[in-house]
Amino acid sequence: MKRFVLFLLLLVCSCNSKKSDYFDSIAENDIKLFPPKPGDWLYSRKEKGQTFEQFSKSKHVIPTKENNIIYLKPIGEFDSLQIRQIELVRQYLEIFFQLETKVQKNASNAIISKEARRIGTEKQEQFLAGFILDSVLKKERPQNGIALMALTEKDLYPKPEWTFVFGLASYRDKIGVSSIYRLQDKSLKGKDFNLCLERLLKICSHEIGHMFGLHHCIDADCVMNGTNSLSETDEHSLRLCSICQRKLNSGFKYDNLKRLKELEKYFKENHLTDGLALMEKDLEEIKK
C-alpha cells in the first residue's frame, strides 16, 4: 500500500513538473534588458512590471465559447501590398494567441468626422485615435468578439499636444487601433515589406496582449516592452518572454508546442529571419 501511495505521489509530481517544463526550458532564451538610455521608454518611466502572481489575481479576459474571436477592421484605402499585410497580420494573430482571427469588411475614411481630422507637422492627414475607439469600434464589436483592432493607412494622433501615436487601445473595452502609416520605409517592396510587416506584428500583438491583461514587461526583451519610437520598436523582440507566455497560457490553455511550431512555420514561410531564429532556439531548448 505504501509503495502504491509513493507511486501516485511520484506520478503527480511528474505531471506537475511537466506542466512547467515548457516555460522553464524557454526561459533559457530570455534576454535581460539593457539599462535604458535617454529616449527609451523606461528611461523616463519607472514601471513596476507585473509578476505572474499579480497577473493571476488581476481581472483579465479569458476566452469562452461565446467570446473567442479576434477581429481586425481595416479603415481606409489600402493598396494591394497593404491588403496582403493585413491578411498576414490576421494569420499571425491567430497563431500568436491561438484564437480564430477574422478581418471585417473594409470601412471608408469617410466614417471619420471632420472634427477628428487634422493636418500633421509633415503635411499628412491624421485621425484622432480616440474617435475611432469611441465612435466607431465601440459600436461595431461583434457579440462573439474577444478583441477588435482597427488598422488605418492614415497617421494617428492621441490628443492635440501630441504629434502622433502608432496606436491606441482601450483595454477595458478590448478595442484598439493601429496605423500602418509610419511603419513602412520608402515602399513595401522587397526588404521594406518584411520590415513593415514585422513592425505591424509587434504593435498588434502588443496592443492585443494588453487587452488580455498583460502589462509592459520589464523582465526581458519581449514584445510586451514599452517603446517610445520606431527605432526602439525595431530593437525589441517579436517573442513573448517566458513569463509573459506563462501568463497568457494560464487562461487560454493552448498547446504551447503547437503554437511554437506554427510560429516557426509562419516565420519561415514569410522570410522573417529574426523571428524564425527565436522560435528555433526555443525548440532546441525544449528538446534538451
Rank of each mutant, 00 (worst) to 15 (best):
L8Y: 11
S17L: 10
S17P: 07
K18Q: 12
S20V: 10
S25N: 09
S25K: 08
N29Y: 11
D30C: 03
I31E: 14
F34W: 11
F34E: 15
P35L: 10
K37W: 12
W41D: 12
R45D: 10
K46M: 13
K46N: 15
E47M: 03
G49N: 11
Q54F: 11
S58G: 05
I62S: 03
I62H: 12
E66S: 09
N68Y: 11
N68A: 06
P74L: 11
I75S: 01
G76F: 10
S80H: 09
L81V: 04
R84N: 05
I86G: 00
R90M: 06
Y92Q: 01
F97A: 00
S108M: 04
R117E: 08
R118A: 03
I119K: 02
T121C: 11
L128S: 03
A129N: 12
I132P: 10
S135T: 12
K159F: 14
E161T: 14
T163V: 06
F164M: 15
D173W: 14
I175L: 07
V177D: 04
I180T: 02
L183N: 09
D185K: 11
C196A: 12
L197A: 00
E207W: 04
C222Y: 05
V223M: 09
T227P: 08
N228D: 13
L230M: 05
E232M: 03
D234C: 00
H236N: 03
K253N: 08
Y254A: 00
D255K: 14
D255E: 09
K281T: 08
K281M: 13
K281P: 08
L283E: 02
E285P: 02
E285R: 03
I286L: 14
K287Y: 04
